[in-house]
Simulated assay, not measured.
Amino acid sequence: MEKSHRLYLVYLSLMFSLVLAVVPLPAMVKLFRPDWPLLVLFYWALALPFRVSIGTAFVVGFLLDVLVGTVLGVNALAYSIIIYFCSAHHLKIRNFSILQQSLVIALFLAFYHYFIFWLSHFLTGVVFTMAYLWPVVTGAAVWPWIFWLLRRIRRQFKIH
């Protein structure tokens, strides 16, 4: 497989994560849905920081804005900021154990949700509830499996 074709697998995984983000779920389950696109972006920003970085995060965030129907640019801005810090510290984060990475990811996810709440509160006047933080818990919980799956794909298809 050519090198350029291998990068399509990265973009395919990001598209699949966008589909997972908009799949209809029951109301109770929807509260616990992890931020699939952000988690997949985290992995690729840690694994390939010079190929998947702020620009990719902006495009994925913008596509999520369009798919979900939020104010355009909110997720794009938040994803760009989060992935910037992730890419800037990718060497440190990669050396952490998977449990430590889950905690770091939880901090990034908490910042993301607080930032989204803050922008939403500024733009539309929403009120903060603890339900905003459930995806932080589930995102940190599924991080080891996402890491394992995407790492396996990256190594099997020699994506670099």
Rank of each mutant, 00 (worst) to 15 (best):
W143Y: 07
A76R: 00
I81S: 01
F16R: 08
V59A: 05
Y114N: 08
L72M: 12
F108G: 09
G69V: 09
L99W: 13
M15D: 07
R152S: 15
L91T: 10
P37T: 06
K158S: 04
W148Q: 14
K30Q: 05
G139D: 06
P24M: 02
V126I: 10
S80A: 14
L31G: 09
Y132S: 07
P135T: 09
G55E: 13
A57M: 01
V10I: 15
I98G: 11
F122I: 15
G55H: 05
L31F: 08
H90R: 12
F157N: 09
H121Y: 12
G73R: 12
A57I: 04
L48D: 02
Y84R: 06
A88Y: 14
W148S: 14
M15P: 06
R94W: 13
L31Y: 09
L38S: 02
Q156S: 08
W44C: 02
L109E: 09
F96S: 08
T56A: 03
P49C: 12
V126Q: 12
I98Q: 02
V142A: 03
A106P: 00
T124W: 09
F32A: 13
L67K: 11
V137C: 03
H5D: 11
R6W: 11
F16G: 11
M1R: 01
S120I: 02
L41A: 01
I82W: 04
W118I: 05
W36E: 00
